[in-house]
């Protein structure tokens, strides 16, 4: 199993990967078997290093491709994301729900790869997201969706924090009189 991942990471030309992919498909059921074993694979591999994880993450996309297709279906992408990004992306659940609900087309390799970059540079409140940051449209839409749907119910907590700010000011009383 681990051999397959290293075979993937050693094959960094397009032609090489295509050949490798065909090799996997020649053994019936192998692709699905590997896909289903991703959690197991993750527990055996040392993925603490960010670079190594990136390679593994790209491998997951590679193995998720079916019938020689370039892109992967939304359904399969969501399953794969839930396996591979669990505990690594705080908005994973919301992202998956959003994609399942709104994305009508297959997931491209670019979107797959950019999501990892996205998960690394934003926090829970989407702080760190740059609207001019060349994110795929799907990511932009997701952020907009989050702002629209969660900012309204976050109002109360925002109010609370504002209240507490004014309280602290009241206590210190920076401007006497």
């Amino acid at each position: 199993m681990e051999g397959i991942v290293s075979a993937f990471s050693n094959n960094n030309t397009r032609e090489g990967l295509a050949e490798f992919s065909q090799a996997i498909d020649r053994m019936e059921g192998l692709r699905d078997a590997i896909f289903n074993d991703i959690p197991k694979l993750m527990s055996t591999l040392d993925l603490d290093d960010a670079l190594r994880f990136s390679i593994f993450y790209d491998f997951v996309f590679f193995i998720s491709r079916e019938n020689g297709q370039k892109n992967i279906s939304v359904q399969r992408a969501v399953v794969a994301w839930r396996m591979v990004l669990s505990g690594r992306f705080r908005l994973l659940d919301r992202w998956c729900n959003f994609v399942e609900k709104y994305q009508r087309y297959n997931i491209t390799e670019d979107v797959w790869q950019q999501l990892l970059a996205f998960s690394r540079c934003v926090n829970e409140d989407l702080e760190g997201y740059d609207p001019t940051g060349a994110w795929p449209v799907l990511v932009d839409d997701f952020v907009e969706h989050m702002h629209r749907n969660y900012s309204s119910c976050d109002c109360s907590s925002a109010m609370e924090s504002q209240l507490s700010i004014s309280n602290t000011f009241g206590g210190i009383n920076p401007l006497p009189g």
Binding site: K70, T108, D110, Q113, Q114, A117, A134, P136, D140
Partner: peptide
């Protein structure tokens, strides 16, 4: 701009363009 972005994505998908490995922008 959103349409332009979609077209860029489509061109990436069709392998006319690729993102730089180091700088994703």
């Amino acid at each position: 701009p959103v349409v332009i972005k979609k077209r860029i994505e489509s061109l990436i998908e069709r392998e006319f363009l690729e993102r730089d490995k180091a700088d994703r922008k």
